[in-house]
Nucleic acid binder design. Structure first.
Length: 848
RNA sequence: GCCGGAGUGGCGAAAUUGGUAUACGCACCAGACUCAAAAUCUGGCGAGGUCAAACUCAUGUCGGUUCGAGUCCGACCUCCGGCACCA
């Protein structure tokens, strides 16, 4: 009798309906408030995995929720379609990367549609198409004009397996972010984007988003930028007019400096040393360190500290003391000034180094002791013979520091820096760890760098009118390390835009993170042929209201896109600093490795992958999506479970069957309003309905999607327990029931939209949820309880409960508690010391 | 090593400001239906204790604050993630 729940039939029906009615296409002239809901665009590998499904299920839930709330929602999708795998496929199987990519896109688009994700397909974009990468090139030229894109020869991170350069972000930890191969250093001419120019803003603007981005992501970004305040100090060199500049954050420890240490790459080593056997020795040591560095970069363990005394002497500008200059392997040329003052007593690394080479360790900072009445002075800590086990790296109070003794570190840091500044041997400074973004890749499948080299005119940017610089149809994939484009004569050979003589094109392509740094602006105006986007149109949609993706991009994509936005702002294209108002980083989807107890991210190589298509076929897209959202909080790891998804199907089936059973009574002659003679059960159901609406609405705002599903199940359980029959139910019962069921269907729509549409129709509504539906509103009066069950504690232990009216006074509640039979048994014969009454909540009776 | 985050039933997990710990689901057990099974429905399900109750114990460990602690404070243990000589 009951109609069965056939997901396939329902899902096909509504996917067609949505497509035919262009249900999810957003327009700018819609007067309603906008909501830009964005998921990270996928690489078209060919197949969706469950991580994608989770990402899109979350995004789609929010998009639907906002639509039902009356927002004009833009929910676009596209393809991050440049990159290695297409090229690998070309090398291995002789396929054209373009064909491979387009086929993959077609297949994945089908998978997304079968999942019923509510994308606005009219805005679809793909990075590998000339109408997109033209604007990558345009942005590059704008940056080039402003000096934000520049070329330099420098040691770069080289992945030997993939024969290409990687950015610092992509070779974090000394291994390739994609293939895990150990990264080498190579000297190459490379294009860089001056992200360091924006280092301060990348840290400073964090305060604009700190409440709405995960703390974890912001911390990693802030660590990556590595802002550090300190001072440069110049040490004069004895018998020379040269100076050695060091960077320190602890100028207050300068009286404890017992050596200066230069990095092996420091240019002054060569200059300072007179030709001698010692010099040969030092230079040889430096060369050895440089050679060993690349290898050490990828070693897990830190190398043992090694150094050599150069025999050169430097003069401490504060104390006038003469100290030796060393070269050592633990000082980095890339940071600060490539030289440090060594203060063994107050820096762990210097301490370790000093111990190894028996350099003096001089304590100049004392802990501020609370027991100690007087400020410690030089005499008390004169005894340096007390063996130190560790450096004392905290701030404290200065001792043995001449006129500065007795000052607090934090004051001394400020005052000594300004002293150095006024006396011309130093300046306060801020340094950053972040390096410029190397974007040259020796690859075919990317956006060509729009630069031409002319023998007479030098480096000439391609004029804007000549964009895009198109990729050739084919290239030889030699794997030699040189870009495949270099072998395509038609591509390389061109004429100089300035002098019209023969010239050559740059043969590198850009990092694919360039494509993804601004793609969501293109969605706003995806077919614009005159500009990357019309700023007026983009300003209607951006910034992105909600961005959803994995946290693996915390310091790559997400820092690049923040940088890009700031550049676009400076180009006058956008008017804000931060592109994304709110960020959600979803957890991984894991599955058990067969035969073990280990849960690992799904992957082909581990054999623990689950195919979304098979899930949809077996259980339906609605159940798959419901399970994915229900099984864990969005930011947690999600453990795959076949029986979990079966549970999701059961729930949908139960709701569906219930709607079917009641549809005739509900859609034909359901009463329009509740009447006053509602049964207690009907009132209870209405109460639960309105409580659930309030909870679900709040949970959507806070992105607690798993508890939304739980709340809907709870409400449905009450509906199931509501013992009335379609043919005998009173009007007021029917009203309560219809209200509950319609609320469930509406609130289920963001999670399992096909089933919700179908049930909405069965409930007597035509035209689909988006037209006739709207998000239910909670009525606080109806949600209020008629009776409260108040727990009564004796000495903090639960002993009884009493039923009272919700408007009970404190005094009444207190009396009710003390007169409760069970409670009397506990308190008889004891002295009641205190009665704590928490209104509406609980009573605690303290006895002795 | 440093910096984050997290430890709650057999499992995924819930729990406004400190106020009924274990909602919801999975698994499991029992019953109904069935010749039988599956599906479905009903009930049970932290541990100890009891015929049943009462009661006792329980949110990683130990301590503290409080009338009252999963939640706050201190110390420790374990796991996960990030960074790795950044001066």
């Amino acid at each position: 009798m009951d109609e069965k729940y056939f997901p396939e039939k329902i899902e096909n029906k509504w996917q067609q309906h949505w497509e035919q009615t262009k249900a999810f296409e957003a327009t700018e002239d819609d007067p309603r408030p906008k909501f830009y809901c964005l998921e990270m665009l996928p690489y078209p590998s060919g197949f969706l995995h469950m991580g994608h499904v989770r990402n899109y299920a979350i995004g789609d839930a929010l998009a639907w929720y906002k639509r039902l709330q009356g927002f004009n929602v833009m929910h676009p999708i596209g393809w991050d379609s440049f990159g290695q795998p297409a090229e690998q496929a070309a090398i291995k199987r002789g396929i054209n990367p373009r064909d491979w990519t387009e086929e993959n896109i077609a297949h994945m688009r089908g998978q997304m549609k079968r999942l019923g994700i509510s994308y606005d397909w009219s805005r679809e974009i793909a990075a590998h198409r000339p109408d997109y990468y033209k604007w990558d090139q345009w942005f590059f030229l704008k940056m080039f004009e402003r000096g934000l894109a520049y070329k330099k020869k420098s040691p770069v991170n080289w992945c030997p397996k993939e024969s290409t350069v990687l950015s610092n972000e992509q070779s974090s930890g000394g291994v390739c972010w994609r293939c895990g191969a150990e990264v080498e250093k190579r000297d190459l001419e490379q294009w860089f984007l001056r992200i360091t120019e924006y280092a301060e803003q990348l840290v400073g603007d964090i305060k604009q988003i700190e409440t709405s981005w995960p703390e974890k992501v912001l911390k990693r970004q802030s660590d990556w930028v590595g802002r550090s305040e300190g001072a440069y100090i110049d040490f004069a060199v004895r018998d020379s007019d040269r100076k050695i500049r060091v960077f320190t954050t602890r100028i207050d420890t300068i009286f404890g400096a017992t050596a200066l240490v230069l990095s092996a790459e420091h240019p002054l080593i060569e200059e300072l040393l007179p030709a001698s056997a010692l010099k040969n020795h030092v230079m040889a040591f430096a060369a050895k360190v440089i050679a060993g560095k690349a290898a050490r970069d990828r070693a897990d363990e830190e190398a043992e500290k090694e150094g050599i005394n150069t025999g050169v002497l430097a003069i401490n500008p504060f104390s006038g003391e003469t100290i030796p200059v060393w070269v050592a392997n633990y000082v980095l040329m890339e940071y600060g000034s490539g030289a440090v003052m060594s203060v063994p007593a107050h820096d762990e690394r210097d301490f370790e180094f000093a111990q190894k080479y028996s350099l003096p360790i001089r304590r100049v900072i004392e802990r501020i002791s609370h027991e100690q009445e007087s400020i410690p002075h030089d005499a008390t800590s004169e005894d340096q013979s007390i063996a130190m086990q560790h450096a004392f790296t905290d701030e404290g109070i200065l001792v043995n520091s001449g006129d500065w003794s007795g000052k607090l570190s934090k004051d001394a840091i400020r005052e000594m820096a300004s002293y150095a500044e006024t006396h011309g041997f130093g300046q306060t400074a801020v340094t950053y760890r972040i390096r410029d973004w190397g974007i040259s890749r020796q690859r075919f499948w990317g956006a060509p760098v729009p630069i031409i080299y002319c023998e007479d005119c030098g480096m000439v940017p391609v004029p804007e009118k000549d964009l895009p610089v198109r990729l050739p149809e084919r290239a030889e994939f030699t794997g030699s390390g040189e870009s495949p484009l270099a072998g395509v004569a038609d591509f390389v050979n061109t004429t100089c835009p300035k002098c019209n003589r023969p010239a050559r094109r740059d043969t590198d392509t850009m990092d694919t993170f360039v494509d993804s740094s601004w793609y969501f602006f293109r969605y706003c105006d995806p077919r614009n042929e005159k500009a990357a986007f019309d700023p007026a149109i983009a300003s209607k949609w951006t910034p992105v209201d909600q961005y959803i993706g994995g946290d693996s991009h915390a310091v790559m994509h997400l820092i690049y896109t923040r940088f890009w936005t700031k550049v676009m702002r400076d180009l006058g294209l956008v008017s804000f600093d931060e592109p994304v108002k709110r960020l959600l980083t979803q957890g991984m989807v894991t599955n058990r490795i067969e035969g073990t107890d280990e849960w690992k991210a799904m992957s082909k190589s581990l054999g623990n992958g689950v195919d979304p298509d098979e899930m949809v076929q077996a259980f339906g897209a609605d159940a798959a999506r419901l399970f994915v959202l229900f099984a864990a909080p969005v930011e947690n790891e999600l453990r795959w479970s076949e029986s979990g998804i079966e549970g999701a199907v059961r729930f949908l089936r139960r709701v569906y069957t219930m709607v079917w059973r009641w549809q005739e009574r509900l859609s034909n002659d359901a009463p329009a309003t509740a009447n006053d003679e509602s049964s207690a059960a009907a009132r209870a159901l209405r109460r639960k309905t309105h409580q659930t609406i309030a909870k679900v609405t709040n949970d959507f705002e806070e992105l607690h999607l798993n508890t939304i599903v739980a709340a809907l199940m709870e409400l449905f359980n009450e509906v199931s327990a509501f013992e009335v029959q379609p043919n005998t139910a009173s009007d007021s019962d029917v009203f309560a029931l219809r209200e509950a069921l319609e609320s469930i269907v509406l609130m289920l729509a963001p999670i399992s939209p096909h089933a919700a549409e179908e049930m909405w129709e069965h409930l007597g509504h035509s035209g689909g949820l988006l037209n006739s539906g709207s998000w239910p509103l909670a009525d606080a009066a109806l949600a209020k309880r008629e009776e409260l069950e108040i727990p009564i504690q004796v000495n903090g232990k639960l002993r009884s409960r009493v039923l009272v009216a919700p408007d009970v006074t404190e005094e009444e509640l207190r009396t009710a508690a003390l007169n409760d039979e069970k409670i009397r048994a506990f308190i008889d014969g004891h002295e009641v010391v205190k009665v704590i009454v928490v209104p509406q909540r609980l009573v605690n009776i303290v006895i002795r």
